[in-house]
Design a protein around this nucleic acid. Structure first.
Length: 733
RNA sequence: GGGCGGUUAGCUCAGCUGGUUAGAGCACCUGGUUUACACCCAGGGUGUCGGGGGUUCGAAUCCCUCACCGCCCACCA
């Protein structure tokens, strides 16, 4: 039977005062000059002294050793209250003696319970002093002039009453001193007024008992938190759980199923009819009952969610199918409020097929919390909420959703930055344009597509890369690494499909080879469709729209994209993948050299390839046209040694040379090579330092040492080639 | 006061069990009128991984400590 519900409390720093009050000791004649005749207690709320029921000192405090067990006469009331000893008291603080008001202070309440003290409520629900009809207050008080005066405080507002109590005490020489005392006072977060602890009757749930199975379920892994470190928070709370006050004085909610008989007897039943029956049995005759007007804490009702939403207590098919659920996704701030309580309730009410308590869910994914730009938690009462609707108006729902996924790294909070959202809006546009390109080139998903049977290297490459992306996205999603999943599909869509595949397939689509064209169209449509599937969880709207629009005119979609199958790899061809990836590497390298050596953008330059074997030869024979177009190369030849005065790149074990004499900015090329050389030499030096360390060679795992050796060889080779290239630049032939 | 987490590029953030050449988006710089896209294309990394100490052959990553920031819980007569 206590009070003080869990309303949101704001601690506010106030310039308070500390009043030192003298409480006369029973049987000694009070005199301000005789410290032995009284005991001094300090308080920040002097008006609560009317409800004092003890003075407490530390049991081992020598100053008060002889006083424990004696009484003091509580001023203004004449009540005799005991001096008790309790460890709670800090001997160093204040006077070492504390007044105890169990009805109006949390700690005093606990002390009151420990020492079997009275609980005298001296306030009414409006925060006024309530003494006149207060049986607890009046009980056992002898009439006196002081008491009569005190009773005139009845109905006085608490802070006015404080002044009057102090004045009355001062008039009697009972105030020793008053000190300024800045301290924190709890304020209601909505009303803004000082909160007064206050006794009321409430309903409680024995949370400690319910918590035990809920703790065990997480300890033995039946329910897992992701990320795992939140389990600590969960245990911390569950192991120190307090009785749960479930009654609320609100106008809405599940009304508490408790009925009171005429004499106050309580009947807790499932329905009014059952309560009436129980009352009739109890009284031997029908009785008039009144139902408790309180409603259940909203979290009590919410705790029933996993099963009450599916028809419980009836044994419905839904309940059978969906309890327990696979994953609960929520924010860490309601692990206590909701997760813990669903665990307790689920394990209490639900049983598996063997009759054992059944958890409500297997995984609990704790997502990041979106904070405002200053990093503060958004809250309705603070008013710092970023309205997702206005973000959506500006950037689109898909961009907002994708941003949240991309930023949802585990264990981190999100400070929502609109530039990220803008970036992902561009991504949605990019996807739309890619689909437009496909449409303009007749790439529609006509009929059955068998991507594993495609023939060209380009087709096989993109099919393989699509599969690799599907794997990456799936693995990330399964591990709840949503940001990695988002990054993987983003990178593939933009960086691989749009930037390379589309550019490489353009000649085929625009060419005359109808067989090749047909395959290219089919593959392009197929890849785009895989992208839509993989991207759908992150950008549901644009992908669903494209899914419908990219259907062949005579074959409209028969299902929503949301219901379509999830992609998986269907082709394994590392040779094709390596071949195109080498092409990509070569084109990138040429572009880089062109830019760094200030080759005019429009200039067509020749390319000479040296060494490198089969892989390099294939580049020329199979992909020559692509290289010419993408890297702006006039013609490609194979050579035995690098032509004089050329820029050189290391590619696939061979050398790619751009004979740029006359076009090239030689100084720029030299600077480029020297910059590269510095990097390589730094690498070599670092690796040498490692390998030169006997401890490293002796203690590091063999494969790590091997890897370093290989890396060293590689770096040395590159270093030598770059040096040669530099030499050739210095002595142009 | 107790507990948890953070500090990495100008900004917002990745970097999972120690071995990467420390990455992405945005911003920025250079250059682009090729028939999907300027919400674009190509190129460029601009960094003492908060400070200090330690463990280790090896630390952005593990430990200690300091500083600052944030959150949760409790609150002192």
């Amino acid at each position: 039977l206590t009070a003080i519900s869990d309303l949101e409390v704001l601690s506010v720093e106030v310039k308070g005062k500390l009043w030192y009050l003298r409480y006369p000791i029973e049987g000694r004649t009070f005199s301000a000059e005789d410290p032995a005749s009284y005991i001094v207690v300090a308080t920040t709320r002097p008006e609560t002294m009317l409800g004092d029921t003890a003075v407490v000192v530390h049991p081992e405090d020598p100053r008060f050793a002889d006083l424990i067990g004696k009484n003091v006469v509580l001023p203004l009331t004449g009540r005799l209250i005991p001096i008790v000893g309790d460890d709670y008291v800090d001997m160093e603080t204040g006077t070492g003696a504390m007044k105890v008001t169990p009805a109006h202070d949390f700690n005093d309440f606990e002390i009151g319970k420990r020492h079997d003290l009275g609980f005298i409520n001296v306030l009414d629900i409006e925060g006024r002093i309530a003494l006149a009809n207060n049986a607890e207050f009046l009980a056992g008080l002898p009439g006196s002039a002081d008491l009569t005066e005190t009773l005139t405080l009845d109905g006085v507002e608490r802070f006015k009453a404080r002044d009057r109590v102090v004045a009355m005490l001062e008039a009697r020489g009972l105030v020793e001193k008053i000190e300024p005392h800045p301290h924190k006072v709890p304020h209601g977060d909505r009303s803004g007024v000082v909160i007064e602890p206050f006794l009321t009757d409430q309903w409680y749930v024995d949370a400690h008992t319910l918590a035990q199975p809920a703790i065990a379920a997480v300890k033995d892994g039946r329910t897992t938190f992701v990320p795992k470190n939140w389990e600590k928070t969960y245990f911390e709370w569950m192991e120190n759980i307090q009785p749960w006050c479930v009654s609320r004085q609100l106008w809405w909610g599940h009304q508490i199923p408790a009925w009171y008989g005429p004499d106050g007897a309580i009947f807790v039943e499932k329905s009014e009819a059952e309560a009436k029956a129980a009352a009739e049995k109890h009284y031997g005759a029908p009785a008039e009952l009144t139902r408790d007007p309180d409603v259940l804490d909203t979290w009590f009702s919410s705790a029933l969610w996993p099963f009450s939403t599916m028809g419980w207590p009836d044994e419905t098919p839904e309940l059978k199918r969906y309890y327990p659920t696979s994953v609960l996704i929520t924010g860490f701030d309601i692990i206590f409020f909701w997760v813990a309580r669903m665990m307790m309730m689920g394990l209490h009410f639900m049983k598996d097929k063997d009759g054992n308590p059944e958890i409500p869910f297997h995984d609990v994914y704790i997502h990041a919390l979106v904070r405002d730009e200053k990093g503060a938690k958004m809250s309705k009462s603070k008013g710092n909420v970023i309205d997702p609707l206005s973000l959506i108006d500006e950037y689109g729902a898909d961009a907002v959703r994708f941003t949240l996924a991309a930023m949802a790294a585990q264990g981190r909070d999100i400070k929502l930055a609109t530039n990220r959202v803008a970036g992902y809006r561009a991504f949605a546009t990019k996807l739309w344009n890619a689909a437009r390109f496909a449409e303009m080139n007749g790439c529609v998903a006509a009929g059955a597509c068998a991507p594993e049977t495609v023939t060209t290297t380009l087709s096989r490459w993109i099919v393989v890369e699509t599969g690799r992306t599907a794997d990456a996205v799936s693995a990330a999603l399964e591990a709840y690494r949503f940001n990695e999943a988002a990054a993987a599909i983003y990178k593939f869509t933009w960086g691989t499909f749009c930037d390379w595949y589309v550019e490489l397939v353009k000649p085929v689509l625009l060419g005359d080879d109808d067989v090749a064209k047909a395959e290219a169209r089919m593959v392009t449509a197929w890849v785009l469709e895989q992208i839509l599937r993989l991207l759908h969880p992150f950008m549901p709207f644009v992908t669903e729209e494209l899914w419908a629009q990219t259907a062949p005119e005579d074959q409209p979609r028969t299902t929503l994209l949301a219901h379509a199958n999830w992609p998986a790899p269907c082709l394994n061809d590392t040779k094709a993948a390596d071949e195109i990836n080498l092409l990509v590497e070569l084109v990138s390298a040429i572009r880089s050299v062109r830019a760094e050596t200030n080759v005019p953008a429009g200039a067509q330059i020749p390319l000479q390839l040296v060494g490198g074997g089969e892989a390099i030869r294939k580049l020329v024979t199979v992909h020559g046209a692509a290289i010419k177009r993408l890297a702006r190369i006039s013609d490609i030849g194979l050579a035995d040694k690098p032509p004089a005065g050329s820029a050189q790149m290391l590619i696939g074990g061979g050398l790619a040379c751009l004979p740029l004499k006359g076009i090239i900015d030689l100084d720029a090329e030299r600077a480029r090579l020297e910059k590269e050389l510095v990097k390589i030499d730094a690498d070599v030096a670092r690796i040498d330092a490692k390998l030169g360390n006997a401890d490293f060679v002796a203690r590091a795992p063999e494969e790590v040492v091997e890897e370093q050796k290989e890396r060293r060889e590689d770096a040395l080779t590159r270093s030598a080639k770059v040096r040669e290239a530099l030499e050739r630049l210095k002595t142009p032939a």
